[in-house]
Amino acid sequence: MVTAVTNLGRSGVYDWLIQRVTAVVLTLYTFFIVGFILSNSPLDYATWEELFSQFWVRIFSLLALVSLAAHAWIGLWVVLTDYVTTLTMGSKGTAIRLFLQVVLGVVTVAYTVWGIEILWGL
């Protein structure tokens, strides 16, 4: 058993499952939004505003936003632990990786909170 404390779920299966479920949510949301834009072109503000005034669209959008945050965290955590390590960068590897993980975490939380503000702060 390899210990890891900076990944999303502390467990390999958990991260793996979350990665797959969020991918499905993001796929559905992408089809939904792209489909809406294509079927309502040219798109004006009123149509867009009406779409997001519906409760379920905001729930769906929030779900997609949270999925994106989790998906990005898991994916980029894997990238960082592959390429930014003591093996690839020498003794400073761990410090650089930890710094990047903190930056990634701050950005992820900030975007998520900002997204909630945009969706629900109307």
């Binding site: 058993m1 390899v2 467990s11 390999g12 299966v13 991260d15």
Partner: peptide, 12 residues
């Protein structure tokens, strides 16, 4: 299985 349920051993 308990020894392999971490993000590296199998899931890398």
């Amino acid at each position: 299985l308990a020894k392999m349920d971490d993000p590296f051993s199998v899931f890398r």
